[in-house]
Design a protein around this nucleic acid. Structure first.
Lengths: 139, 139
DNA sequence: TATTGTTATACTCTATAACTATA
DNA sequence: TATAGTTATAGAGTATAACAATA
């Protein structure tokens, strides 16, 4: 029973890691994962570099570099905070939004190709499983 | 219908990536992922560096470095192939096996803690889903 | 000639420590 | 003083190209 749970934990974990790995290697997105991650965080509004560093769990200097790179590529824009001269705001540009959408689409396309041909029953199992896992992750 | 498949693909992908990410950040294993990956491939027998490079999808020189690092840490050992002087064999040492087990356990423990408390029905859904996904990944 | 593996070199992402500027 | 961000520097992991040894 508890051993069963151990096996299930191992199966879920390794399967999820396999899917992630394959998506990462085979989807060939336009954006590197950590770039896409930052842009994704900006979808629902601008953020300061510190906030982004915390959200992405990287050190502040790493985020400085990432943001500079994204600015050079025109995917985000920087603006100063009028109330606090120390602070900056990173915002998604239209080009950044396009690049993000393209990346998401590339990854989803890869996954969709794998899932095409599954029976309705198998699709329903996956639908239910994502619901369960998301509940588990939020807990 | 096809749009449904798109939504499902997105849900499966993002959920699996979330699980991977959380395991990676929160399980705090002894071994870095790419080191654990190599040791894992050696569990069912010795391999040549080329085989390992292919399996891990990295270039040969990268694997040379990784293997050297693991040798220095005493986690694998190297031996020559008597039949082919060009070739080498990488084998798991006892210390390597211990380190691997500890890493696997840390990751599985994290996952098991999330899964504990799920109903039998939810556990069955996850069991079925891993079976479906593994079938999909192998195709 | 083809193959196995290594060395040389460089790029990317990461981190810590020291610095600048604002507050 | 404390905080936001940058610069300087270094370490880890990856890659390609050129090389050595063996088949």
């Amino acid at each position: 029973m508890s051993e069963d749970l151990g096996h299930l934990a191992n199966a879920v974990r390794t399967t999820c890691q396999q899917v992630s790995r394959r998506v990462r290697f085979e989807a060939n997105p336009e954006l590197a994962p950590h770039h896409a991650g930052v842009l994704f965080k900006l979808l629902d509004g601008s953020r300061t570099p510190s906030e982004l560093a915390d959200l992405e769990r990287v050190a502040a200097p790493s985020m400085t570099r990432t943001v500079n790179c994204l600015v050079e590529r025109g995917l985000v824009s920087l603006s100063g905070n009028p109330n606090d001269g120390r602070s900056k705001l990173v915002s998604l540009t239209d080009a950044g939004q396009d690049a993000l959408e393209q990346t998401v689409r590339a990854r989803d396309d890869w996954m969709m190709q794998r899932l095409a041909g599954l029976s309705e029953a198998d699709q329903e199992i996956l639908r239910a499983a994502t619901e369960v896992l998301n509940r588990v992750l939020d807990a």
